[in-house]
Structure formats: C-alpha cells, structure tokens
Design a protein around this nucleic acid. Sequence first.
RNA 1: GUGGCUAUAGCACAAUGGUUCGUGCACCGGUCUGUGGCACCGGCAAUGAGGGUUCGAUUCCCUCUAGCCACC
Length: 366
Amino acid sequence: MGFRVQYRSRRSAARAGILRTAHGTAHTPFFMPIATRGAVKGLTADDVRASGSRVVLANTYHLWQRPGLGTLKRAGGLHRFMAWDGPILTDSGGYQVFSLSARRKITERGVEFRSEIDGKKHLLTPEKAIEIQHALGSDIIMSLDECPPYPSTRVYAAHSLALTTRWAQRGFDRMKKFRSKKQLLFGIVQGSSYRELRRESTRQLLNIGFDGYAIGGLAVGEPAEKMYQAIGWVEPLLPKDKPCYLMGVGKPEQIVEAVRRGVDMFDCVIPTRNARHGTLYVWKRRALTGAFYGELRIKQAAYAHDVRPIDPRCDCGACRQYSRAYIRHLMNTGDPLALRLATVHNVRFFATLMEAVRRSIRTGTL
RNA sequence: GUGGCUAUAGCACAAUGGUUCGUGCACCGGUCUGUGGCACCGGCAAUGAGGGUUCGAUUCCCUCUAGCCACC
C-alpha cells in the first residue's frame, strides 16, 4: 500500500510513479472517471476496464443516501456491488457541501443535508464520512472537507479552512480505530485563492500526516491561472513521497499543466458529462503542447453523412466499429446506446491522454 | 362528382378583428470541472393564392389551389 515515484522530469515538477492499493496498482499520473452512484454513467465495469482507466471515483454522500449502507454491506462492499475489482477512491461528500449548498447547513459537528430523496435531515460528520467509506471498502478515503465557493472572502476562507483541518483531524482519529492498513486516507487542502491560507492549510494537514494530499476548492469557477497559482503554492510544501491529487480537474490542457506542477491524480465529470451532451474529444496532434485536441459536437448536421470514426486514431470500442453518422443518429433519436458509445470514447480519450502524459514524463518531454 | 373539415416556421401543433403570432422537434451557436440533470443558455425561421367586408384581416365572407374524411 502506498506510493512510489519512478521518474522525475528535469523540465518541470512532473513525475511518474506507482500507487499501490488493496485492489491493484495504478501508474501515476492517472485520471479517474466518475462513478458517483456506483457506475460510470452508461458503462459496464468491463467498459471501464477496457478504457484503460485503473481507478474510479465514487461518492460517499450519494451512495449513503441511496442505496444505503445496508444494501452495500449485504452486497459485499462497493467493489462487488458494482463488479469493479480495481481501486476505488471515494469522495467524502465535501463537494456536495458546495454543489448542494441550498440543501445543507454547516456546523462544527458536520454537514446537515436535507435529503433530495425523502426530505429527511441527515448529519454527515467527519467521523461518519470515514465510517461510510470504510464500510464501502474504498481504497482511497477522502477526509470530509468544506469546499467553499469562488470567490470567497479571506475571512470566510480562513474559517472554512480551519474547520476543514479540524474535520481532517477528527476523521484521522476515527480512521485510526479501524487500524485498516488496506485503505489509504487523504487530507484535502483548502484556502481558496489566498496564498497564506493555502500554505497554512497544507502545513496543518502535514502535521496530521496523511497517505496522500488533495488540493480541493479549485475548478469551482475561478480562472485557470488562479488554479495553477494555487497548485504552485501548495505542491512545493508536500512530501515528495506522497501522492498529490487535484480534485475535480479537468480539461485536458489543465491536466497537463497540473502534471507539470507536480500533480499525480485527477478526476472530473467532463469526459462523461460531455459525452452525454454530445461533445466528443479528438486528437489534433500527438505532442501535448498547444491545441493538441479538439471538441467534436456530434449532434451537428455536418456529421450526418460522415462515415469516419469519431477519431481515426482512437482505439476505443466506439471508434473501432461505429461511424460519426451512426452515433449522431443514435444521439438524435435518443437511443441509450449513443450515451454508451460517446462515453466509451471520451473515457478512452482521457485514459490515452494520461498514457501520453506518463510517456512524456519518462521520455523527458514534459 | 357531392358534402364536410383543414391550410400558421423545415415538421407537429398553439393563439389572435388592433403595437414585436407562441410551444415542441429539427437546424445553427454556446455552456458544463471532487455529477441531483441524455441538462441548460442563446439564435434562425411562418399566417397557401386571389378578391371582399372593415379605420384596420392571420382571424369574418367568397373564389381558387392543395390535403384529409364521408357519401355516391
């Protein structure tokens, strides 16, 4: 269990390594497709495996709400439930503090959510978040944090960060009682767009001592430059032998930029959500510089008679057998197969991107 | 052939005797960042033809044309 760096770039802070978990290893930097409710929307576990993705992200809050821990325990844990035998990282519910902000209340004890299913109130404490993730059998457990909106005032961000640190400590203490050597626990750096707050947050988490460190509270609407800036404040303070995870990012060029700044792990809804909305990724050139990819809007009439695959250079199941015209047709007629093929392609694109990123680090071009 | 019904955007339908005639689909453009959403935001685009009534007609009347239904 743990992380080992294998290659370090001489041109940047980029590095390539291996993350070992109870459900197998993953080469870093990697990208995790999102399986919020226990499925990468539209894909089977086999589809995900075939995409080359090694780790998926599932969500503590949503799985806790539905189907609930009773079902998941009886099913033998999340891995067996979703037929995925690879590593799973679970988000703690911290992002729902942000995305479901109208339905929750933050207190020192935790976050009180008003359920979108039955309207009942549910208190998610940092301890509870750990307990749920432990029960799910998650390989990488995230501390409960507060993801503040952008922009946030310095005062708000400071209080928020302090709360996140206290929650991180409480979660850490709860985790100790499980004595689980099989599950990694990550802390999440906050501090909004303020340099000193980011550094303070990082130092406090280092004091507690996690298996890995995530940079949170980014990709919430701030300009990309601010995001890179925040990474630049935090990453140099992190231990070189622990993985660094940039939460919720992002667009392909943002991933490449973050890798240059030392980030090892990513997740984002972009490939899956965009696939469902008809935006597909295509390669423009092999080198990861400039505009190396494009976005193809498959619903446009321009593709009505286009019998080429989405991307002639892509080796995904959709590109191997189906044309743009066919996928467009399925999309425009509302066939669920469209969503699957589009998602297969985009998830493969991101996995391929990460393969190119890792190769570029090894060959010294990144 | 006779009678009836209909004619509004590319398509399917709304509405109205009085400034800019709506909606859905399609089409065009955009958005989506630790996923409540196969979602959201913009845009293009129409009163079948001719005549009449009226201050004013897409609306009421007549004719033509076309389509649908019924009857012979």
